Computed example of a mutant assay.
Amino acid sequence: MHGDQALQLVTIAHRSTLATAPQLPIPKYSQKLVLDICLETRQLGDAIAHATASVENLTQDPALICALTIKHLAVRRNKRCLLAYLHTRIGGIKERWWDAGGALAHLLAPFDASSTLGVGNSTGDPDAPDLRSALSQQELDLMRDYSSLVLDYKSDFLDVLDIAAPIGRPPGELFVDVRVVRDAGEIVLENGARFEFTKGSRFYLERALIERLIVQGYLEEM
């Protein structure tokens, strides 16, 4: 029946928004379902065009008017469902970019089941797809372009404010005691200091210098 596939698509999008803490993983892009809906929409459009081209006066055939109205409404509904699906996924992509503090490489890294936190997987669930495999190529391009756009915007005042820094909890002190929860290797901080962040080690450092590593899940506050 017309619209059944579009309803499936909206249901998938709705399920991905049912929880925010912890986030549900973004479902894998439903390419086949999207293409099937596009095909159905084109077929409905062709049927409408063919019917109207073969009739000189539609007002003389109420049954045809009714049939064309149903097809037209089905086309509009399919388009709205497709746009709702894409809009929901774009919102989820942007939300995860901000949650990761703009760390695109970290966000698109493959899932590491041995890590305390799943890299590229917001839930740490090994059965859930990592973000890169869940997105279509167009969505990956969108995420990269969005990241470049925000980074270009914030570069003009990065020495004053980092708009990608988390704001859920204001910092209580300039220095913070942290523990390494995932190996990060040797890191050179903005002040030039070098640290070897190996899992289990602890440091007392300036929060502003390691805020990004905390957001990315390499460090956790004690």
Rank of each mutant, 00 (worst) to 15 (best):
A53Q: 06
S54F: 01
E56W: 01
E56I: 07
N57A: 06
N57T: 08
L58I: 08
Q60C: 05
D61N: 14
P62K: 02
A63I: 09
I65T: 10
A67H: 09
A67R: 12
L68W: 01
T69Q: 12
H72L: 13
V75N: 07
R77M: 14
N78A: 13
N78C: 11
N78M: 10
R80V: 15
L83G: 12
A84S: 14
A84C: 14
Y85D: 05
Y85Q: 06
Y85R: 06
L86I: 10
R89W: 00
R89N: 06
G91E: 02
I93E: 12
E95N: 13
E95L: 14
E95H: 15
W97M: 10
W97V: 03
W98T: 03
D99S: 09
A100M: 08
G101P: 03
G101C: 04
G102M: 04
A103C: 09
A103P: 00
A105C: 04
A105D: 07
H106S: 11
L108V: 03
P110H: 05
P110E: 01
A113M: 03
T116F: 05
V119A: 06
V119D: 03
G120Y: 07
G124Q: 03
P126Q: 04
D130H: 10
L131F: 06
L131W: 04
R132H: 13
A134R: 01
A134D: 07
A134N: 06
Q137T: 13
Q137V: 13
Q138F: 12
E139A: 07
L140W: 03
L140P: 09
D141E: 13
D141I: 09
L142C: 07
L142I: 10
M143C: 11
D145M: 12
D145F: 09
D145P: 02
Y146N: 02
S147W: 14
S148M: 04
S148H: 14
L151Y: 09
D152E: 11
Y153K: 12
Y153A: 15
K154Q: 15
D156G: 08
L158D: 09
L158M: 12
D159W: 15
D159Y: 13
D159V: 09
V160Q: 15
P166W: 05
R169G: 00
P170E: 05
P171K: 10
E173F: 00
L174F: 00
V178D: 00
V178C: 01
R179P: 07
V181Y: 01
V181S: 02
R182V: 03
D183Y: 01
D183L: 02
A184V: 02
A184K: 13
V188K: 14
V188W: 01
R194P: 00
F195H: 15
E196F: 02
F197V: 04
K199E: 10
K199W: 00
